[in-house]
């Protein structure tokens, strides 16, 4: 039971980072990306490759993962600069679908559908952090750093410029904000952090394959942000906890057959997303704070 809870807490920390970074795009900058699992995956694959071939040091692997994810995020920044609204959603969908195919087919880089196996236990500067408890501490530390950085950034001029951009792009531009630079920067920062989450995920699972980085995962991440409350600091975390505890809670209900839990879970978060949009478009946390 304790082991189960530690595992759940680690996953909450990892997805907490991912959802917080997606919230930067969706909640603060109004860039509605459905390609976030792609960068989560890039982070995980890069970390896995670094751990397998260079060094099992978490800091090295996570830094490499974050840098590569951040650099490749320019693929997402490009359409974000050119188009808005429906067009951007469509572009990010296209990107996500291409990425899923590449993850599944580029055998030399990603191991194909079989994935990369045997990722060595994480170490930091020679210390072993592979035990579940130590790894949980590491994940929580990463989450704390992410939250601190996001909080500082969003309170400062960068955050305010972003929110201005989200609410009215032309007004932000009229006030002399460099819209192109702001958008590119926020996409890079968001993808940098999800790269770290990917690295944590790779070490935690000791195994990565395409299953974890498909469109469904992107939708789950989006659901976490939206259900929790986009544009708030704690919202995405609330969403992550709610969605990750859901399967555990459902397994206690005796009348649902174990094989159908995944389906029931999908139904619940689908319906939850729709219901929230109808009744509380600002999400669970957004509700207590009133308008964002």
């Amino acid at each position: 039971m304790i082991a189960y809870l530690v595992n759940l807490a680690t996953l909450i920390a990892i997805f907490g980072i991912a959802a917080t970074s997606l919230n930067l795009l969706i909640g603060y900058a109004g860039i509605f990306s459905i390609a976030h699992a792609m960068f989560f995956g890039i982070g995980a694959y890069v970390a896995a490759q670094v751990a397998l071939t260079v060094s099992p040091d978490f800091l090295v692997a996570a830094l490499a993962a974050a840098v590569v994810a951040g650099a490749l995020s320019l693929c997402l920044a490009l359409p974000a600069l050119r188009v808005r609204g429906e067009y951007f959603v469509a572009a990010s969908l296209g990107l996500q679908m291409m990425a899923s195919t590449i993850f599944a087919e580029a055998h030399s880089l990603t191991g194909g559908v079989g994935g990369l196996v045997g990722i060595p236990p994480a170490r930091i500067l020679g210390f072993d952090v592979a035990s579940p408890d130590a790894f949980l501490v590491l994940a929580l530390a990463c989450l704390a750093v992410t939250l601190a950085v996001v909080r500082t950034l969003m309170r400062g001029s960068f955050g305010r410029s972003l929110m201005a951009l989200r609410d009215s792009e032309s007004a932000a531009e009229a006030f002399g904000k460099d819209v192109r630079a702001l958008k590119t920067l926020v996409v890079v920062v968001g993808c940098f952090f999800v790269g770290i989450a990917g690295a944590l995920f790779a070490f935690h699972m000791a195994f990565v394959n395409v299953e974890s980085f498909t469109l469904e995962q992107s939708v789950v991440l989006m659901a976490m942000v939206i259900i929790g409350g986009a544009g708030t600091l704690t919202g995405p975390l609330v969403g992550v906890i709610a969605l990750l505890s859901l399967p555990a809670a459902l397994s206690f209900l005796p009348f649902i057959p174990a094989t159908e839990i995944g389906t029931v879970q999908q139904f619940i978060y689908g319906a939850l997303m729709t219901a929230l949009m109808i009744f509380r478009p600002s999400g669970i946390v957004g509700l207590s704070r009133g308008a964002r």
């Binding site: 969706i26 509605f32 609204g85 429906e86 959603v89 939708v219 989006m222 659901a223 939206i226 389906t263 029931v264 999908q266 139904f267 978060y269 689908g270 319906a271 939850l272 997303m273 729709t274 219901a275 949009m277 109808i278 478009p281």
Partner: peptide, 17 residues
């Protein structure tokens, strides 16, 4: 636009499930 999109997406997922 995004609110409508998310609601529609959610309904699609629920129906598929």
């Amino acid at each position: 636009f995004f609110t409508v999109f998310v609601a529609s997406f959610g309904a699609g997922i629920a129906m598929q499930a």
